Amino acid sequence: MNRKNISILGSTGSIGTQTLDIVRLNKDLFKIEGISTNKNIELLIDQIKEFNPKKVAIYDEIAFNNFLKLKEVNEYKNLLNGIEILKGLDGLVEISKSKNIDILVTAVVGMVGLLPTLAAIKNSTTIALANKETLVTAGEIVMSEAKKHNSNIIPVDSEHSAIFQCLNGENNNKIEKILLTASGGPFLGRKKEELECVTKNEALKHPNWTMGAKISIDSSTLMNKGLEVIEAKWLFDVDPKDIVVHVHPQSIVHSMVEFSDSTVMAQLGCPDMRVPIQYALTYPKRISSNFDRLNLFEASNLSFQEPDLEVFPCLRLAYEALSHGGTDCTVLNAANEVLVQYFLEEKIKFYDIPKYISLAIKEHSFIKKPTLEEILDIDKWTRDFISNTVLNVQKV
C-alpha cells in the first residue's frame, strides 16, 4: 500500500486521537499533513512534536491568540518554525482544500464540518467521515458534489462502517433493509418519569463506548441514532422507512444489511472505534492490528429490541424530519447542538432537548430544496431562535 498523506479535523478529540494512534503504529503507511483543534492547544503541541504537520488550525479565537504567543517562547520557536498556523473556520477549510492530502478525517463535532468537507470534495480527496452533521444538514448537496468530483466518502462511525463493509462486493444487489444497531445508551430500560431530572453526569456515562461529551449526550437521548438514520439515508441511498433501528446493548453487532433474497449480513467486533477508523484509512485493503479480538463464547448473549420512542422522542423527531425532508434536518441538528451544550451547562433539563427541537422545526420557514447558502442561514436562525427561547424562559 502506498503511503498516504492525512489531515485530521479535530485531532485532539476522541476520534482524532484514536486516528493518531493508528498513524503512530503505521508510520510507513501514513504521514500527517494537517491537524486542528478547537481549544486544546496543550495536546496540539504534543501532536506537533510527534507528527510534524505542515498546517495547524485552531478554531477558538482565544486559543488561537494564546497559541501565537508560543512562537515567541524559546522552547517553541524551532518547533513552530515553518508550520502554517491558521484560525477559525477559514483555517479548517484551508487545511481541507490542500491538494497534498489523500484522506481528510473529519472528526470535528457539529455543523462546523460541512464547509471544510465540501472544500476537500472539490479536490477529489477521500473523506473519512466521522462528522455526522455534514450529511444530516446537507446530505443531498454533499453526496451530489462527491459524485461530481469523484470523491470517495468512507464512513467512520462504527454502524455506517459496518453497513459499508457488508455491502462490499454486493455491487447492485438490492438492499431491502438497513438494520442499524444502537447500544441504547445509559438509560436503556428506564421509564420516562425516571429521566425527567437526570443529570449531565448520569447522561455522560455510556456503558460501552468512550466518546466526547456531545456525542455521549446524543447517545443518552438516542439523537445520536437519529442522526445516524439520516446519515445512512444519504450514504446508502435508501428509503427512510427501510432503515430500522435495533437496540443491541452488547454493541457486538455493529449493524446489518438485509437483502432482497432475505439474507442478512452483519459486521461484528469488539466495541473499539480504532477498527472502523483504520478500515477507512486503509480501504480497500485491511492491515494487521493489535486490537482486541472478539470471543463469541464469552459474548454469547446477543439481544435485540425495538427502541422506545416515547421515552426517547429525539429518535422519533429525526425520523419525522427525514421523512419531511428539506430544512427540517438542518433545524433538527442545529437546535440539538445548542440544546446539548445548554444541558451540559445545566441550563435546561433532559426532556427540554426534544421539546425545543420540536418547537424550532415547527416555527422555522421550511424550504424543500435549500441551497447551501439557505442551509447556512437556517442553521444560524435556529441557533438564535433556541438561544432566545431558552433565555426568555429562564427570565420568567
Rank of each mutant, 00 (worst) to 15 (best):
residue 272 D to K: 01
residue 126 T to H: 04
residue 107 A to I: 12
residue 194 E to W: 10
residue 386 I to E: 10
residue 125 T to N: 02
residue 116 P to W: 00
residue 177 K to P: 12
residue 359 L to F: 00
residue 50 E to R: 08
residue 375 I to C: 00
residue 15 I to Q: 09
residue 132 K to T: 06
residue 155 P to T: 01
residue 239 D to K: 11
residue 254 H to R: 05
residue 242 D to G: 07
residue 111 M to R: 11
residue 208 N to W: 07
residue 349 K to R: 10
residue 382 T to L: 12
residue 393 V to P: 07
residue 106 T to D: 14
residue 5 N to I: 15
residue 131 N to V: 05
residue 158 S to L: 09
residue 84 E to W: 12
residue 198 V to I: 04
residue 197 C to Q: 14
residue 171 N to C: 08
residue 86 L to Y: 00
residue 44 L to H: 02
residue 156 V to S: 03
residue 133 E to A: 05
residue 107 A to W: 05
residue 38 N to F: 15
residue 395 K to D: 11
residue 221 T to W: 05
residue 236 F to H: 04
residue 27 K to M: 08
residue 94 E to Q: 10
residue 300 S to P: 10
residue 306 E to D: 14
residue 337 E to Q: 10
residue 138 A to K: 06
residue 380 K to T: 14
residue 247 V to W: 01
residue 347 K to R: 10
residue 216 S to Q: 07
residue 58 I to R: 00
residue 387 S to F: 13
residue 31 K to S: 13
residue 126 T to S: 06
residue 131 N to Q: 07
residue 65 N to K: 15
residue 16 G to R: 09
residue 89 L to V: 11
residue 345 E to M: 09
residue 37 T to G: 00
residue 194 E to T: 02
residue 20 L to H: 12
residue 84 E to G: 06
residue 162 A to N: 05
residue 271 P to Q: 05
residue 1 M to W: 03
residue 312 F to H: 00
residue 76 Y to R: 09
residue 233 K to C: 06
residue 203 A to T: 12
residue 41 I to A: 06
residue 174 K to V: 10
residue 272 D to H: 03
residue 277 I to C: 03
residue 155 P to E: 03
residue 214 K to E: 09
residue 331 V to T: 09
residue 105 V to N: 07
residue 118 L to W: 13
residue 358 S to Q: 14
residue 91 G to R: 07
residue 125 T to Y: 00
residue 96 S to I: 06
residue 74 N to R: 12
residue 148 K to M: 11
residue 87 K to F: 07
residue 396 V to L: 15
residue 393 V to E: 15
residue 16 G to C: 08
residue 139 G to Q: 08
residue 70 L to H: 01
residue 340 V to S: 02
residue 289 S to E: 07
residue 130 A to P: 03
residue 371 T to W: 06
residue 81 N to R: 08
residue 283 Y to Q: 04
residue 149 H to E: 10
residue 272 D to Q: 01
residue 79 L to K: 04
residue 221 T to A: 02
residue 41 I to L: 05
residue 62 I to F: 05
residue 96 S to W: 00
residue 215 I to Q: 04
residue 268 L to P: 06
residue 296 L to E: 13
residue 225 K to Q: 03
residue 67 F to E: 13
residue 318 A to C: 09
residue 310 E to W: 12
residue 395 K to V: 11
residue 118 L to M: 05
residue 196 E to T: 12
residue 261 D to I: 12
residue 274 R to L: 03
residue 292 D to I: 14
residue 365 S to Y: 10
residue 338 V to R: 11
residue 385 F to M: 03
residue 278 Q to P: 06
residue 323 S to R: 15
residue 122 K to R: 10
residue 377 D to L: 13
residue 149 H to P: 10
residue 332 L to W: 01
residue 389 T to I: 11
residue 31 K to F: 15
residue 316 R to Y: 13
residue 191 K to N: 10
residue 362 K to W: 03
residue 179 L to Y: 01
residue 50 E to H: 05
residue 369 K to M: 13
residue 185 G to A: 04
residue 116 P to Q: 03
residue 7 S to A: 14
residue 217 I to N: 04
residue 187 F to L: 05
residue 38 N to K: 14
residue 46 D to I: 08
residue 62 I to V: 15
residue 153 I to L: 14
residue 23 V to D: 12
residue 209 W to A: 00
residue 325 G to Q: 05
residue 45 I to D: 05
residue 2 N to W: 06
residue 292 D to R: 13
residue 123 N to H: 09
residue 386 I to H: 00
residue 174 K to C: 07
residue 133 E to I: 02
residue 160 H to G: 01
residue 289 S to A: 02
residue 266 A to Q: 08
residue 124 S to H: 08
residue 267 Q to R: 01
residue 366 F to T: 04
residue 50 E to V: 02
residue 105 V to H: 02
